[in-house]
Computed example of a mutant assay.
Amino acid sequence: MPYDAIRVETDAATRVATITLNRPDKLNSFTRAMHRELAAALDEIVASGARALVLTGAGRAFCAGQDLADLDFTPGAMSDLGALIEEHFNPLVKHLQALPMPVIAAVNGTAAGAGANLAFACDIVLAARSASFIQAFVKIGLVPDSGGTWFLPKRVGMARALGLAMTGERLPAEKAESWGLVWQVTDDADLAQTAAALAAQLAKQPTRAIVATRHAMRASATQTLDQQVDLERDLQRELGNSYDYAEGVQAFMEKRAPRFEGR
């Protein structure tokens, strides 16, 4: 389908899809229309058989969060933020977390508010050296949403999470990397190529194993050790019956590179 607020590209050779948030004049801030396009694009990418996704932004920002111009501030008829979150932001975060492929955020500039937490909802975060992350909610009297209160404490600890959320201070990319929020920082000119190369590498891997690994890692946050090792057992049993496991073992025995198909 045609898109206005985003661009969608799929490389048939590498089976890597790329979604670019494409409202550069508005720092790629969210509107309801953008949300609808993102939901449709994610479904389209899954249907296409892509095996990795890169999410990035056009221009000088990754995403500046919600576009306030898309909200109604008329006294007595103000937009219901809870309804907005329930209808758009929460489904987007859940959709990204459940995709049957690895997702890379290539943060090319400012990631503020929901835009920062959109990046953290992805599996791996790459950032340009000039990028920054801002929990901007406090600046307009709000609480971090789009999973921010879940992602931040788990990744940087409570002290740093509260500091970021309560002050709304800008967190530079290299500091975000040292705190564990970012996998890798690259020179600005190298970000797109680095993200494409990593996505192509992941697309060649056993996709079901990658998705199962993501599921197990996230489950560990709320499970006991006994529950977690049982989950590992169940996932290993399931993957042990997959084509990619048989191919991986065969390739090892034949001393050649495996040809995984993601099944």
Rank of each mutant, 00 (worst) to 15 (best):
R36T: 13
G113M: 06
A58P: 07
A106N: 00
T110K: 04
G49T: 13
V107W: 10
F62P: 08
A119E: 02
A105L: 07
L84G: 05
E37H: 11
L96A: 06
P75Y: 11
H95I: 08
A119T: 01
L53W: 01
A106V: 03
F62Y: 11
T110A: 04
A116P: 03
A128H: 10
R60V: 15
D70N: 06
A52L: 06
A50P: 08
A58E: 11
A40V: 13
N90I: 12
P102A: 10
D70Q: 01
A98M: 09
E87T: 15
A111F: 06
A114T: 14
A40Q: 15
G57H: 07
A64E: 10
A61S: 15
I85N: 10
A58L: 08
G76Q: 05
A69C: 02
H88C: 09
H95W: 05
K94F: 04
D67W: 03
M101H: 00
Q66I: 15
I124C: 00
N117C: 06
L81D: 01
A61V: 06
L81F: 04
S79A: 02
L38P: 02
G59F: 05
I124N: 05
A40H: 14
A98H: 05
F62W: 09
G57P: 05
G82Q: 02
M101N: 00
N117L: 05
E44Y: 12
P91Q: 01
N90K: 12
R36A: 12
A114R: 11
A114L: 12
E86A: 15
V46D: 09
M101V: 01
P75S: 05
V54I: 15
V54D: 10
I45C: 07
A50H: 07
A50F: 08
L118W: 03
L42A: 07
A61R: 06
L126H: 14
I85M: 08
A112C: 05
A77D: 13
H95N: 08
I85P: 01
D72C: 06
L118Q: 04
L96V: 09
P100E: 03
N117Y: 15
